[in-house]
Design a binder for these strands. Sequence first.
DNA 1: GGCAAACAGGAAAACGTTTACCCCACTGTA
DNA 2: TACAGTGGGGTAAACGTTTTCCTGTTTGCC
Lengths: 344, 344
Amino acid sequence: MTSIKTVAQQAQVSIATVSRVLNGTKYVSPDVEKRVLEAISALNYQPNAPARNLRRQQTLSVGVLLPRLNDFFFSDLAYVLEKTLSAAGYNALFCSTENEEEKEAAIVNNLIMHRVDAVILVPSVPVQKSLATVNRLLERSIPVVLVDRGMPGFAVSQVLSNNEQGAYDATAYLLDLGHRYIGVIDSGTGTAKLAAEPGHERMKGIQRAMRERGIALDNSLVIFDQFENIEMGYHGTLRLLTEHPHISAIFALTDAIAVGVLRAASELGWRVPHDLSVSGFDDLILASHVIPRLTTVAQPVQALGEKATELLLRQIHDPETSPETVMLDTRLVIRESTAPPRSP
Amino acid sequence: MTSIKTVAQQAQVSIATVSRVLNGTKYVSPDVEKRVLEAISALNYQPNAPARNLRRQQTLSVGVLLPRLNDFFFSDLAYVLEKTLSAAGYNALFCSTENEEEKEAAIVNNLIMHRVDAVILVPSVPVQKSLATVNRLLERSIPVVLVDRGMPGFAVSQVLSNNEQGAYDATAYLLDLGHRYIGVIDSGTGTAKLAAEPGHERMKGIQRAMRERGIALDNSLVIFDQFENIEMGYHGTLRLLTEHPHISAIFALTDAIAVGVLRAASELGWRVPHDLSVSGFDDLILASHVIPRLTTVAQPVQALGEKATELLLRQIHDPETSPETVMLDTRLVIRESTAPPRSP
DNA sequence: GGCAAACAGGAAAACGTTTACCCCACTGTA
DNA sequence: TACAGTGGGGTAAACGTTTTCCTGTTTGCC
């Protein structure tokens, strides 16, 4: 493949000069520059990134670790991250961690070998699983930004949605509609929850809303399962509605889960919102297109991505910057899947 | 950052030896190997991929260009490609082309600079837009595999679903149920279609099914729009059902579109499948969870990804291999969204 | 015991850049 | 006219590997 040397010969200059016009590093006279540019396009020359990265000791690329590339929410996140990162001149290297410790570790090893300039990580749940990973990066002083799932008190930049408040809002809304028996289908994996994990924070918000209104949360109405996403909502709802027929509302901690809820309700002959109110979380595009349109808590995905990139750049440019945790507001979006309970 | 040189010093050997134990390139005696391994783990050494790639003249990474990372179908494809490629020892570099010529070209330039070993491309539509791109790669003898959207007669490997047959099956099924007025909502961008583009192939399948049964396709029942996905299905259906109330079935050329169809039908008070049959295409997980469960044509996403990787590897290992086009079978999945028309 | 062959490991070149350093030929000033 | 300063461009080192070639030691065989 044609290298900078070929270009230099063709343009009758030294390779240093070629490099200079390539990078605008130093003034070169117009005629020489012209010769070089002509040679470049004549030879169809493309610089060799590995060589450049080796010499520059930077790759202009950042690793992005998500639980799954085809998850509704995370693929949206991936999309905006790709946009914001590339706008900043960085390449995004997307990887699926599958929420598995070992896979995450392996990927991070790989990213370290590739000398990424930074890493954006959605930690695995529970977040301790990702602690070692994050430390490996930090001890090599590779900037890290956590997204969506946080590690409270840990010296690393984090950008999170205000899951507690979001869940509070949705719960308060349901309660104020008159619902007293609210089923909850959890997005977690069923393991012990920690602070700053969305599942845990959302549960906290739910509890706060109920406590404030003097209502006790019936733990038997809180469900999680081994299923994934939609399936979890589906099976969870089948269980909830048959075992607790007095339930009048279900809070699905994810829109994907809510899709499963709607389906199960329909199969059991419960009409939404007439017999059962349903709220989701995330506000995927899908949420406003299911039947009925889903009441949900909107996450600021775009802002999440922008903020993450911003913190990342700051850390890259000034390694001394102290880590920062930013929390972004959610927004309750009321649509058609919620209504007052039938028999108050 | 600690390099191979440091390891060599620490282990009291030459860097060549370190390299050898790293790559298992040549026998090294057990005690020396032990010293090296100890030094490696003591120093927490990770090889420098840019340097390695520069020297080896290969990067073990392949570019994967998809229209959008957060599209339902393409994110599924991305997911399986990541799996199959990484199983083969390759890194996947995912990029969104946005179905735009210029963006695609820019991305490919970038991938060339990074010296990817190969490229998997879902061409933009219409596929001529991607011709230059593909040629740029081929003239640098970078293996290319086209997925989902083909370029018939072009000397490049391609792996496609049998869209024509799939659409034929679904249409035949609808016709045999007794439907005569079938609306079609196209997945294309509204531009002129070409052979091997899914939109075009599916239309051909529809036409064949109707022709075989002596029925003429009413072109005014075929719709495409500027909207994206779900929105297109939604707006398209609103138009179709109000302008052509005698329609008894809609074939959405994508499951995402079908979601929009269901929503529009519901808003207009058409019950599915009682008043309107709906078929999708793709068989996303979502398809079996919307209400009613969607009749659709299953695409072999998994096989698509596996086959693409297979062809890719073959080309990488033997550059002389002649390109190959493989077409994978689809499968009609009958669920609840289709039924005989009300008044035959 | 001597010699060829095999064997383990080292020295150094090469991959394609960027950049520090150097040099030559001007220009402008005293 | 001489000389310092500057501007344009070249030389070569360095980035961290892999790999070819070479060397010195050991082995095996007669």
